[in-house]
Design a protein around this nucleic acid. Structure first.
Lengths: 260, 260
DNA sequence: AAAACTCCTTGATCTAAATCAAAGTCCAGG
DNA sequence: CCTGGACTTTGATTTAGATCAAGGAGTTTT
């Protein structure tokens, strides 16, 4: 059923077929032979501050591969061996931890530009599922890790990314531990808005590719409470609910609620 | 592993006169004074897997200073410039984020061996206060950061530490978002037990140097709920409450509750 | 085109934990 | 040796959000 579908979706993208699949997802090879475009983007993402030397860039390009997957695909599962480092180039992922009794905590959502699997643990600490069709790049961990040790400023860049993620996780702890349902929802929307704004400059329209249940599991609420809270804020003219997300009407008010 | 002095200092936490104890590093209880020995421990802590070269060790020793502070001292404050990297060698710190309206989220407790201020952000993301008398080492950030760039395996070690912290933060997100009061308290106690066990092998006495309010703010509960929950678990013979912490009677049951 | 999903919404009720209130304990300082 | 303050505990009451229940809207499947 689902698991089989996932496997074939990802499995079919390995080796020679990968390039054809990558084409279908819209990535264009910069020249006839090299890896598709989004791989290049992924590498650039890594070298934001310090530019990469041509040989470093080449090394990353050689070990990287660009892939696509439909919504609901599981990229990797909690507890499984971490064999790749990922960079998402399009779409969105849900990162979740599952409790034995079925309760679920969404620890984050990955958006284009985000890296996954950078942690130096041998296994993944959470499951990553596509909540929309995704494009991403993967680098085999061993080669990636090896490259890293010979390029200190790449390693430092990684450390910066990890630091940033830790800060975000601690901010989410504040949201989970101290905030009311309304504050949680407002903080979530402001957070998504900022992330999407950084990606595409769009400020009023906030895409919400994940379900209400995903949002609920991210905020430590139930679907019903999330739905009711969003409905109430919409009634109060803070935003308008549209099929793919919300269109903000009163950003100042939303911010005030989120930061209360 | 080599930090034997710390172990005995911690073991003494269960004794009323712990504070007066003269550590073999020779630091004097109130107000900072140099204490070379602890510095050595801190450096060793950093090099757990890959041994440090003598010159690296020397470099760290040259830039580091060892200090003490009484309970309630603030080591650094949220938002302030991060000028030092710290390693705690004895005592415990509360790491907390404050909301404008006074609500507080404790994002963690630092125990001996823990590093602070490793994040590469220019300012501290939380406030660190001593909840008991502490001994710690500080390294000026600039020198530390400079040393790091010339020693890739030190940087990698740091990355491992950051990864580990991120994993812990995500686990705490599960606790905050999905668990009941009883599960939260049980998870907290199991967590503290494991950390202290790693430090001093002690398994039955779990020291709790922080107040009930600190625990409440860590778990997203109120003092009353924490107090009642601890009282109930004690009534159910899961542990006995002693002045400095708890003595576990039924670890299996506590674990069962924590992992439910 | 009906059936079967999944997802979202809204309403009615219930409950775990918050809040309010009041002692009791343990000190550190005068 | 009191005394004031910080911390803890316990009880009574309230409430925010969970749970239970049901309908609707949009899909994919048959």
């Amino acid at each position: 059923m689902e698991a089989i579908g996932e496997k074939s979706a990802l499995g079919s993208l390995s080796r020679p077929e990968a390039r054809a699949e990558a084409h279908r997802c819209g990535c264009k090879p910069p020249n006839g032979l090299a890896a598709p475009d989004c791989l290049e983007c992924a590498i650039k993402e890594l070298s934001v501050c310090g530019a990469l030397d041509p040989d470093e860039f080449e090394a990353l390009e050689r070990i990287g591969r660009s892939l696509c997957a439909p919504a609901k695909t599981t990229l990797f599962e909690q507890g499984r061996e971490a064999s790749f480092v990922y960079n998402l180039t399009s779409g969105a992922l849900r990162l979740a931890k599952l409790l034995p009794d079925g309760r679920r905590q969404v620890v984050g959502f990955a958006l284009p530009g985000d890296f996954l699997g950078l942690a130096l643990a041998p296994t993944h600490m959470f499951t990553a599922d596509a909540v929309s069709p995704v494009k991403f790049c993967q680098f085999p961990r061993a080669s990636f890790s090896h490259l890293l040790m010979s390029k200190p400023h790449l390693l430092r860049r990684l450390m910066e990314i990890a630091s940033q993620e830790l800060t975000l996780a601690q901010e989410q702890m504040v949201v989970l531990g101290q905030r009311s349902a309304e504050e949680k929802v407002a903080a979530f929307l402001i957070g998504m808005r900022e992330r999407y704004a950084r990606l595409n400059g769009q400020c009023v329209y906030v895409p919400l590719p994940m379900t209400r249940l995903d949002i609920a599991d991210y905020l430590g609420l139930t679907v019903e409470t999330v739905s009711r809270t969003i409905a109430r804020l919409a009634r109060e003219k803070v935003f308008v609910v549209v099929p793919e997300g919300v269109r903000l009407l009163d950003v100042a008010k939303l911010k005030r609620i989120a930061e209360a």
